[in-house]
């Protein structure tokens, strides 16, 4: 058989990494796992600006300068997105753990209702659930004679927490189910109650297996928080759009959205890396 030369396009093996640069490239790539990812990131940013610059060579103020001008404002909005993501995750996790445990309840009605709720919220579009929550929850609530206003951001947190809840419920149920029945049997035969068995034997083992998918869900939720811009909340997405309206320059669309994407990427990618690392560490050892 002939080997070696060919004029067909072939996939070459990747080159060995270049020596690290002197301005801390190696530190940054440690966070991002590999230099390839970092290089792709930089290339993406530069390209976005370059494409925009090329599209309108005699632009008024420099595009980079304009992007930098808006960055602090958009970053503030991004912090708001993060706050919403943390709050939704917290609410969704607490509710989801209860729903997940409900699915393994020995009481049939509890099991049925938990199962139905999980399936319903897991198979609904996040955006529709968000709208649903916005209109379902009232503007204000009377709690013991005190009228409490329900701001839009609060409703948005609840709206996003609904699908999170359903997904956490599945993670909890799956984690518990992944523990061999022998563990239940031996705990039962040592006269542990069902609650003790869950709390002392099953959950400590299952939680380890739940953490990676839970983190993965958090990363997905963080990216999904931009949905709240649709229901009129001033998040990073809304602010970016506002900046574009204020500037009224088509050449800014690409770079500004690229900047927004980068913000999310820089936050979510390390979570994905950490998730993978944990998955490897918790890989089943029996």
């Amino acid at each position: 058989m002939k080997t070696g030369q060919t004029d067909l396009p072939v996939l070459l093996p990747s080159r060995p990494p270049a020596t690290p640069g002197e301005w801390g490239l190696s530190d940054a790539s440690a966070v991002f796992g590999s230099r390839k990812v970092l290089a792709a990131l930089v290339a993406f940013a530069v390209l976005s600006v370059a494409v925009a610059e090329a599209a309108d060579a005699n632009a008024r103020p420099g595009i980079l300068a304009t992007v930098l001008k808006w960055t602090p404002l958009i970053a503030t909005g991004f912090l708001f997105n993060l706050a919403v993501s943390v709050a939704s995750m917290a609410v969704g996790t607490v509710a989801g753990v209860m729903l997940g445990l409900g699915q393994i309840s020995i009481f049939r009605p509890v099991r049925g209702i938990s199962w139905a709720a999980t399936q319903f919220f897991r198979n609904s579009p996040w955006l529709v659930l968000l709208f649903f929550a916005m209109f379902l929850l009232p503007f204000e609530m009377k709690i013991g004679g005190v009228t409490v206003a329900l701001p839009a951001w609060f409703k948005a947190i609840i709206g996003l927490a609904l699908p999170v809840m359903a997904n956490v419920a599945e993670i909890v149920r799956g984690g518990i189910r992944s523990i061999p029945v022998g563990q239940w049997e031996s705990a039962e035969s040592l006269a542990f109650t069902r609650f003790q068995t869950l709390w002392r034997i099953i959950l400590p083992q299952a939680v380890k297996r739940m953490i990676p998918p839970w983190m993965n869900l958090y990363a997905i939720l963080t990216m999904a928080t931009t949905l709240i811009s649709v229901v009129g909340i001033q998040d990073a997405m809304t602010l970016t759009r506002g900046a574009l309206v204020a500037e009224a320059r088509t050449d800014l669309y690409l770079p500004l959205y690229a900047m927004l994407l980068l913000l999310f990427f820089v936050y979510c990618y390390p979570i994905a890396r950490l998730t993978q690392a944990l998955e490897r560490r918790f890989a089943v050892r029996i």
Partner: peptide
């Protein structure tokens, strides 16, 4: 069941120790 199981110990083929 708990009162019964306090009196009866059982050892399984697959040991079923608590791995954690």
């Amino acid at each position: 069941k708990l009162a019964l199981r306090r009196k009866v110990g059982i050892v399984f083929q697959q040991y079923n120790l608590f791995p954690h």
